[in-house]
Design a binder for these strands. Structure first.
Lengths: 226, 226
DNA sequence: TCTACTTAGTGTATATTAGACACTATAAGG
DNA sequence: CCTTATAGTGTCTAATATACACTAAGTAGA
């Protein structure tokens, strides 16, 4: 295969799986497609990546334009997930999808979006076109494991938060309940967060202390094989 | 961005980081490039991925043709690593590289390869073109962490092996020495391997029992956050 | 003002896992 | 049979994980 005029690359697309927690549910950003194929169906926001544009730049352009979400402002964590490229995944022909996962909080897609964005609970997804269900599943699994060995939860929380909020974020994403005392003991021992002198008051009960992350850089906290 | 004739995708390439252990060193497959750019320099095998061919198929074609390594026969483990796409990585223009990592044992590149393949210890790499040094580093890190939470070592071992060989594979890849008793205790407790009734005899000393993996499917063995 | 309600916050005992550490067993070869 | 080389094994201690239930501190309403 030479790099000559005969060489024709496949279509390159990018797709964004954007998570946030709403109503104690992990929800994913979907758009209603404005064009064929799958016009008017819900799908993960994505689009074409042309020559000269990196996938990150294309992703920012596409999520902003189609879904009204600004990656740099709205997301607190983003990572490349996987490149999906089974020839059959697109009915129009061979299209390679470089997919990303992003996480944030209080994301409100702007009204100027071209494809009517909405957040949908990951456990209540409709049928999705292409291999978007696979991509979301892949992202969920990645997210789950990220929480277990990094401090990536920070992306889902406000800058100051209570330990209960922290625990609820874990429970929502991992999909199981955790013991309050053990969770606190362990998380505090990691040294990733520190208490502030502020309290969170809400409702007719004792107020909760607010904590903050010592760093918002992704940090590893795993115990390894050896 | 519409899907019309104006749309021009970037060049798509695939690259393969192939590891094996030789002489107790982790070594990586390199080829001497037959064409510009970087003609005659050592590089990771890679090439163009045309329309209609999945990256896996392109990878197989390219490693076989250029490096004389058959992915299906020579490698016991392969996974997609990452898609590198900084615009500046290729001097000819925007090229996206979907990179893969593969591992095997006793890989002997066939003489019919077009680009004179050779295995080079990862700690003795020459200057490499493109971002190939980054790609190899990324692959090494991924491999290291894979060993800590999966049974991926099997790719580096013969089907029957001694515990000493198993430990040496770990030591080589992790780059540190492990305690013999603790290593054996822990690995045996995972239930991933079983003893055979065969012994490995070599040299003037006590023979070693041979073990085999109970499964060669990739299995997880991590302890999680919760 | 006191009572009920709701969430915050805390400690201990047990089980499991990790890590440090040194000697005996078994073969070949001279 | 003695030397040499690698195989193979167990115990003690430290660290971590897990199970588990009560008190503290605020609000709201009687």
């Amino acid at each position: 295969m030479k790099y000559t005029s005969e060489y024709q690359p496949p279509t390159l697309t990018v797709d964004a799986v954007v998570f946030q927690i709403i109503d104690d549910k992990l929800q994913v950003l979907l758009v209603r497609r404005s064009q064929e194929p799958f016009k008017d169906e819900l799908a993960v926001p994505g689009g074409y990546n042309p020559q000269g544009e990196t996938t990150q730049v294309a992703l920012k352009r596409i999520t902003l334009h189609k879904a009204g979400v600004d990656i740099d402002k709205d997301l607190k964590y983003i990572e490349q997930l996987y490149t999906f490229d089974t020839v059959a995944r697109d009915p129009r022909g061979h299209a390679v999808s470089v997919s990303y996962m992003g996480c944030g909080r209080d994301i409100k897609p702007s009204a100027s979006a071209s494809e009517r964005p909405a957040f949908v609970p990951v456990d209540e997804l409709p049928e999705l076109p292409y291999d978007h269900a696979d991509i979301i599943l892949y992202a969920r699994n990645r997210l789950r494991s990220k929480l277990t060995y990094t401090n990536a939860v920070y992306a889902f929380l406000p800058s100051k938060f209570t330990l209960t909020q922290l625990q609820q974020a874990y429970e929502t994403i991992l999909g199981k309940e955790l013991d309050k005392r053990n969770f606190r003991k362990k998380f505090l021992s990691l040294g990733l967060i520190r208490e502030t002198d502020e309290m969170f008051r809400e409702g007719a009960h004792r107020p909760a202390r607010l904590y903050e992350f010592t760093s918002k850089k992704l940090a590893s906290l795993s115990r390894s094989f050896d």
